[in-house]
């Protein structure tokens, strides 16, 4: 599903944000991307949705080499990827319904189909009764969930999230992680960048640990359980 092959990214002004990163995420996997602030997590996600291009190496998403992707083909790639980004959230002059409907409108769905899918997605994130509200009238956690509904409404095969639990209380964070887990259970590949280590460790999933742009560790879930057990003894 996602393959990084010796990927480096250097921003025009600044040092290397990623250096020689290698990994392969098979379809249907759920993976956490961790690391300190500035480690390169957001950069890595941006490479996947072609908000940035790799300086060196190759990025493959669903077999497509993104380095060779023409500008005009970027939208098609993005339509099959759901993204939950903290700073590209909601349009505050549109209702919750319209916000969530956006990817469907773009993909060209009939209004009836749009209505059906948006309601299903909102029900999924527990906001079935808020579709007519403006996002400004929602709490931070609810806004975050609207963002998630928008990310999944087009049933993407890949779901990316950058700090989806950024400023939520622990209870809400767990709830949102639970949502991602449910999407993964129906076959969606999920990649979440987060530095909420306590939460991630509880999830028992594969972890990619970035440190200053390098992939320091690629831990499969089982190892993690073993470590935790050892720690518990």
């Amino acid at each position: 599903m996602i393959r990084f092959d010796q990927v480096s990214k250097r921003y025009p002004e600044g040092r290397e944000a990623l250096s020689r990163v290698n990994f392969d995420i098979p379809a249907g996997d759920m993976v956490f991307l961790t690391g300190k602030s500035g480690a390169g997590k957001s950069t890595l996600l941006k490479l996947i949705i072609v908000m940035e291009r790799a300086s060196q190496g190759q990025v493959f998403v669903q077999g497509t080499n993104l380095n060779r992707l023409a500008r005009r083909n970027i939208p098609a790639i993005r339509r099959d990827i759901g993204v939950v980004f903290q700073n590209h959230q909601l349009l505050f002059d549109r209702t919750v319904f319209e916000n969530v409907a956006l990817p469907l409108t773009i993909a060209g769905y009939q209004p009836r189909e749009v209505g059906r899918r948006v309601r299903a997605a909102l029900a999924k994130v527990g906001l079935g009764d808020k579709e007519k509200q403006l996002p400004i009238a929602l709490s931070g956690g609810e806004q975050q969930r609207v963002g998630i509904a928008r990310a999944v409404v087009n049933k993407p095969s890949l779901l990316l999230a950058d700090e989806p639990t950024g400023n939520l209380d622990p209870g809400l964070s767990a709830e949102i992680m639970n949502l991602f887990e449910q999407f993964n259970q129906v076959g969606v590949t999920v990649l979440i960048a987060s530095h909420d280590l306590a939460l991630i460790n509880r999830m028992n999933r594969r972890q990619l640990l970035l440190h200053e742009g390098r992939l320091l560790e690629d831990r499969p879930p089982a190892t993690l359980v073993a470590t935790d057990l050892r720690g518990g003894l």
């Binding site: 249907g28 049933k155 449910q182 993964n184 129906v186």
Partner: peptide, 21 residues
């Protein structure tokens, strides 16, 4: 594309909403 073996793509015991989606 090959699915990773660990989890089947669908499980029957999902919430109703998931099924609608």
């Amino acid at each position: 594309m090959a699915m990773a073996g660990k989890r089947p793509p669908r499980r029957p015991n999902l919430q109703a909403a998931t099924r609608v989606v």
